[in-house]
Design a protein around this nucleic acid. Structure first.
Length: 336
DNA sequence: AAAGGCAGCAACCGCAGAACG
DNA sequence: ACGTTCTGCGGTTGCTGCCTT
């Protein structure tokens, strides 16, 4: 059971690798293969532990490693995969040829995680952040102002803005949750998230919800979005990616939910990406500047809360199993 | 020009499970 | 069946270079 003692060895070099060490390692592996990592350093003439050699090879020296910046497609794929797999960096890496788990992990922690946070998305759950969406949306202004959120002092104006943002985020979360119901199938137990969410959203959000229930998604959602000033995505014709089915399996258990999607394909990059519900529409955050250019291909990350819409065609749902049917079949969805 | 702060990333650490004797 | 070794993985650290003051 015990730990490998290789890194406890005294006298082995640590720290950055020199070009000479790299050459020794590459030459040896190209001639002999790595074989036992434990024995490799001695055989290759390196004063390193085997673990260090393996890491250097797999993360840097391997000939099939793709170097350079992550492409937009890779970024989207990482976000999708992370939403389905969590911090399973090695699993994610197997779906990004030439990228290592370490590289993806670093990129996530240094870039993508911050970007999602700046967009008001929880990088763990990939949903609008609950601290804003569920707490602030339901709290009276006076409380928000008096308490300050996250140890920040808020004046009433800030609290007002925060509450407005929170309501929007909550509505976005509601829409996403509804989409997830369609994507993942209906759970056999009441969806507490959804119920609390419905309770926390404004009447407009509930109207939107009812609109979804009562009729076609596109027209009514657009009307509500227009009336609310929100950019709710037009769900019609959107494709929801098989987030939980990236491994090509159907009905894969992920995060406690089950997907019945059979498609194992990745999101169609050419399909229209739904627009994001901005956390603060009135002031375009500077943190998003990198993705607000006129290049429409760069808006994908802005759309992350609804990136999940890219892979599933909802048209059939409107005709075969509509929201009405869904809600009639599962009344707890609407009753508190 | 120098100092301090910050971001990015290579490398290390330690755990867990597989493989092996 | 059991103990030891090896490998893989995720989390974390710390070095380096760039940017700001």
């Amino acid at each position: 059971m015990g730990r490998a003692p290789c890194c406890d060895e005294v006298g082995v070099k640590k720290g950055p690798w020199t070009p000479e060490e790299d050459k020794l390692l590459v030459d040896y592996i190209q001639k002999n293969g790595h074989g036992s990592w434990r024995r490799l350093p001695k055989l290759a003439g390196l004063n390193r532990c085997g673990k260090s050699c393996r890491l250097r090879w797999t993360n840097y020296l391997r000939p099939d490693i793709k170097r350079g910046r992550f492409t937009e497609e890779e970024e989207k794929l990482i976000i999708h995969l992370h939403s389905a797999l969590g911090n399973k960096w090695s699993s994610i890496a197997t779906r990004l040829p030439g990228r290592t788990d370490n590289e993806i992990k670093n990129y996530w922690n240094t870039h993508l995680c911050k970007r999602l946070l700046s967009m008001g998305i929880d990088p763990v759950t990939h949903r609008p952040r609950a601290d804003l969406g569920l707490l602030a949306a339901g709290l009276p202004l006076s409380l928000l102002a008096a308490a300050g959120l996250s140890n920040q002092q808020l004046d009433v104006g800030s609290a007002l803005k925060l509450q407005a943002d929170a309501a929007q985020l909550a509505k976005a979360q509601l829409a996403q949750t509804l989409v997830q119901l369609l994507t993942n199938g209906v759970p056999t137990t009441p969806n507490l998230d959804l119920m609390s969410l419905i309770g926390s959203t404004s009447s407009l959000g509930q109207q939107y919800y009812q609109g979804i229930i009562n009729g076609s998604l596109g027209a009514q959602s657009a009307a509500l979005a227009a009336s609310s000033g929100l950019m709710f995505p037009d769900l019609q014709g959107c494709n929801i990616p098989p987030v939980v089915c990236m491994d090509g399996l159907s009905s894969t258990e992920v995060h406690g939910t089950t997907s019945n999607l059979s498609s194992g394909t990745l999101p169609d990059e050419s399909s229209d990406t739904p627009k994001l519900v901005s956390a603060s529409p009135q002031e375009k955050p500077s943190s998003l500047e990198c993705s607000t250019s006129h290049d429409t291909s760069t808006n994908s990350l802005e759309s992350s809360p609804f990136d999940g819409l890219e892979g599933l065609n909802l048209e059939g749902i409107n005709t075969d199993l509509g929201w009405k049917d869904l809600l009639e079949q599962f009344p707890w969805l609407t009753s508190p």
